[in-house]
C-alpha cells in the first residue's frame, strides 16, 4: 500500500509538473529563440521554436495552425506565418492542453479572424465575434485549461470543442480531420490529418526525440499512447520503399514519416513488455529502474535531466501497468 500511494503521488507530481509553469521552461530565454520554418508538403509547413512544433496550413481561405507554443513566442511565430501568407489566421487547433502547445492561444486568437454566421453575433469577453480566430480542441482540453491554476486568459480557451471521436472541416481546399486519441499523452489528445497535403500533425502522442510523456494526472496512459501510434501508422501511407508519402509532424523533434513512427511504436511496445514482465516477477520500482528496461533506446529518446527523464518514464509506465 505505501508503494501504491507513492506511485500515485509520483504520477500526480508528474502531471502537475507537466501542466504547471515548470513545464513551460521558465528559465528559457525566449528572446534568443529563433523560429525556423520548414515546408513539409502540399499546403503544410512546420514551425520549430521552443515548446511543441507548430503546424501551419496556408491557402486562399486563410491560415490554420495547430498548437501555439509559448505566449512569449507568439509575435515571432506570427511574423514568420505572415511571411507565408497575408491571409487571416482563421483556425487554431490544440492537440492537448499543455502550455508548451497552448501558451500562445490568446495571442493567436487575437491575431486572427474567423467567419461566423447565423444568429451568432455580438460580443464575447470583450471581443467582437469574428474578430478573432476560432480555437478548436477536444472537450477535455477545454476542461483541463479551465482547471488551470493560475487561470489562463479566457480568450485563450477553446471556442469550439467536440466530445466524440472526431471533428472535421474543409479548409483551403482540403479535408482536415481532428481525431481524438483517448487516454494517450493526456485525455484530450487529438492528431490532425490534412488529407490532401497528406500530413499528420500528432501533438505529443509522438515525439521523435523523447520517450512518450504519460501525464497520468491528466488521464494519459501507455496503452493509449500505443493505440494512438497505431492509429497514425494506420492512417499513413508510405511511398516507394517505406519512405515519404504521408509526412508526420511530431509534437517535438524532427519531421518524420511512417517508418519513424513504426520505430517509435516498436520501442514503446518493447519497453512496455519488458516492464510488464518485470512487474509479473514482482520487482519493485527501484529494481525495475536498476534493471534498465529502456536499454538500447536511451541515446535516442532518453534524458538524464529536464522535465521528462528516462527514470520518470519508467516510473510512469510502471505505475500505469499496476506496479506496486
Amino acid at each position: 500500500m505505501p508503494n501504491l500511494i507513492k506511485n500515485s503521488c509520483a504520477s500526480l507530481l508528474i502531471g502537475l509538473f507537466i501542466a504547471s509553469s515548470a513545464y513551460t521552461q521558465t528559465s528559457q530565454n525566449f528572446q534568443q529563440v529563433e523560429i525556423k520554418v520548414l515546408p513539409v508538403q502540399g499546403s503544410v509547413y512546420m514551425l520549430v521554436g521552443a515548446g511543441g512544433n507548430v503546424t501551419a496550413q496556408i491557402g486562399e481561405e486563410g491560415v490554420l495552425i495547430v498548437d501555439t507554443q509559448y505566449a512569449e513566442l507568439s509575435h515571432k511565430l506570427h511574423a514568420e506565418i505572415k511571411k507565408l501568407s497575408d491571409r487571416p489566421i482563421q483556425f487554431v487547433i490544440n492537440t492537448h492542453a499543455h502550455k508548451d502547445h497552448t501558451g500562445g492561444n490568446a495571442n493567436f486568437a487575437k491575431f486572427g479572424q474567423s467567419i461566423f454566421g447565423g444568429n451568432v453575433t455580438g460580443v464575447v469577453d470583450g471581443a467582437q465575434m469574428g474578430s478573432q480566430a476560432k480555437i478548436l480542441a477536444h472537450e477535455n482540453v477545454l476542461l483541463r485549461i479551465a482547471e488551470e491554476n493560475p487561470p489562463i486568459l479566457f480568450s485563450g480557451w477553446p471556442t469550439d470543442t467536440f466530445f466524440r471521436d472526431k471533428k472535421e472541416l474543409f479548409f483551403n481546399g482540403e479535408g482536415v480531420q481532428i481525431l481524438h486519441q483517448p487516454a494517450a499523452h493526456t485525455d484530450g489528445d487529438s492528431i490532425v490529418f490534412f488529407r490532401r497535403s497528406d500530413v499528420i500533425s500528432t501533438g505529443d502522442v509522438f515525439s521523435s526525440n523523447l520517450y512518450p510523456v504519460i501525464d497520468s494526472a491528466l488521464g494519459g496512459s501507455i496503452q493509449g499512447i500505443i493505440e494512438a501510434l497505431s492509429h497514425i501508422i494506420d492512417l499513413a501511407v508510405p511511398a516507394l520503399m517505406q519512405e515519404g508519402g504521408t509526412m508526420i509532424i511530431p509534437g517535438h523533434g524532427r519531421l518524420c514519416d511512417e517508418a519513424d513512427v513504426v520505430e517509435y511504436r516498436d520501442m514503446v511496445i518493447i519497453i512496455r513488455d519488458r516492464i510488464e514482465d518485470m512487474i509479473k516477477k514482482r520487482m519493485t520500482l527501484e529494481e525495475v529502474i536498476a534493471a534498465r528496461p529502456t536499454l538500447g533506446y536511451d541515446d535516442q529518446y532518453g534524458a538524464q535531466n529536464g522535465f521528462w527523464t528516462t527514470e520518470r518514464f519508467v516510473e510512469a509506465v510502471y505505475g500505469d501497468l499496476g506496479g506496486t
Binding site: 525556423k36 520548414l38 512546420m46 520549430v48 520503399m241 517505406q242 519512405e243 515519404g244 509526412m247 523533434g253 524532427r254 519531421l255 518524420c256 514519416d257 517508418a259 519513424d260
Partner: peptide
C-alpha cells in the same frame, strides 16, 4: 539540412 529536417534511408 537542419537538424529538424526529415531523415531518409
Amino acid at each position: 539540412p537542419p537538424d529538424y529536417g526529415a531523415h531518409s534511408w
